[in-house]
Design a binder for these strands. Structure first.
Lengths: 259, 259
DNA sequence: GAGTTTTGATGTCTGCACACATCGGTGTCA
DNA sequence: TGACACCGATGTGTGCAGACATCAAAACTC
């Protein structure tokens, strides 16, 4: 009886929590289940079946499926149904997909991918920022670096996290490359995830704090080479500190898709 | 009179070509117009208005708007309508967004972003591939590099393009990082765009051909440092060859979004 | 100016017609 | 008799139309 959504009821409670639109919850539900593997590759669903399973109407299901389709999670075929696509078809840069993967078994693999991407991008961003960033962003970066060092010394974990995110955000924005700047959100996820999961030491590494200051001052001075070097130092340390979380994750070598 | 879509008719012909679904064409239409700026930031549309403008039904409009919403191009607000979001909210990694930008005035800026991203990522991918790629991919890479050199010498532009795409695809796949591997599609866009727009010389640079071979053989030998160095050479040259196309494009320094 | 009502847009539900890929039966030919 | 091509039935996504629910902006009242 697909009636109104009336708070706490229904034993087959599939659309968790409230305060978001129905189609959004449907996306969340299906996306999560696909990425955790509960709905495996090749699994076929029928729109009609989803209606009663999720207790929503056709329009909600259809809009949700459209979005999942644009994320590469499913494809629709007439006379067949809605087919779950293999992970190689998922859009690994979509922030929803990243979020879902971070809260699945593939968390380690997703973290590794993100760290590798950051390790490649941040030094380049540092270089670009040193060459191109507007004066105000350079000043801001220096201020944040100093505040970050202070917070590290005083052991204020919450403030340290905020400043850490701000630092890398400003750096990436300062590159003047909108793709780099957009990684900010993902970086924030990894950083917050790190503290939440207790991977941060009580007092951050003294060298790392100094490298942040060095990086900021190199950017301010327009010294691209030094900025890159400092960024590489930071990323090397970050990588080595986190690499323990994905030692058991096998690498996946995607097939070369020729369309 | 929103009746069936009957081929060539309608003077206000907005949904171009056929053979794709209506909602897909609606996405294409709106996405293009938003990114070219024909529908500027803050512009407000009404679903009802879109229905008659595109000559499609409510459900088609709604599904298209949902997808555009997930791409960060629009937001919907009750009592207001469908609002076009500023470029800083667009998902710059989505392949549709990239494609739309490549065929807009911002083409130069998009190319620069992609090249900068490639320049950061490919050397890292080369390093990872040298350390982790399975034997078969290494062999394949060497074969392609040699074929690429031959094609370069013989001046077969079409074959050269195919092999060039294949080379970078295999390299990125060989990194074992699904985000790197996924850049493949975007790389293909830039490479094809380059030949189509007549930016390729008749005979590719001899040094570049050799660097591809060096890179492949370093990966095959597991020599990460050499592989990275060769990749950096290639990207430096690619950058310098293409930088002319975006000299006039201003860099955009996105605001740091703190949610 | 604070609280209340009205209004107008999206959100959701439903029934229907159509397009079309798949499957199975039928007919043809060797 | 068996293999193969054809063709229509079937079932599913796609698209359409209209209704009601919801909720936030805007207008209104006090």
């Amino acid at each position: 009886m697909p009636t109104l959504w009336n708070g706490a009821s229904q034993s087959q409670f599939r659309l968790e929590s409230m305060s978001t639109s129905l189609h959004h919850r449907a996306i969340e539900n299906l996306g999560t289940r696909i990425i955790t593997g509960e709905l495996p590759t090749g699994h076929i669903m029928l729109a009609e079946h989803l209606e009663e399973e999720l207790q929503v109407s056709r329009s909600v299901v259809r809009e949700a499926v459209r979005v999942l389709q644009s994320l590469g999670l499913v494809e629709t075929t007439k006379r067949v149904g809605i087919r779950v696509l293999p992970p190689s078809r998922w859009n690994p840069f979509d922030s929803q997909v990243i979020r879902w993967r971070l809260s699945s078994d593939a968390r380690g693999a997703q973290l590794r991918s993100l760290i590798e991407l950051r390790s490649a991008v941040e030094p380049a961003a540092a270089e670009l920022a040193a060459n191109n960033a507007p004066a105000q962003l350079r000043r801001e970066l220096v201020d944040i670096a100093h505040a970050l060092r202070d917070a590290g010394h005083s052991g204020d974990a919450q403030k340290f996290l905020e400043l850490d995110i701000a630092f890398h955000s400003v750096l990436l924005s300062g590159s003047g490359n909108e793709m780099f700047a957009n990684l900010m959100g993902q970086v924030a996820e990894t950083l917050t995830g790190r503290t939440v999961h207790g991977l941060m030491p009580d007092h951050p590494h003294e060298g790392a704090l100094q490298w942040h200051v060095d990086l900021a001052e190199a950017v301010a001075a327009g010294d691209a080479a030094t900025a890159r070097a400092a960024s590489e130092q930071i990323m090397r340390r970050t990588t080595s500190r986190l690499s323990g979380t994905w030692t058991d994750q096998p690498r996946v070598f995607l097939p070369v898709r020729r369309s």
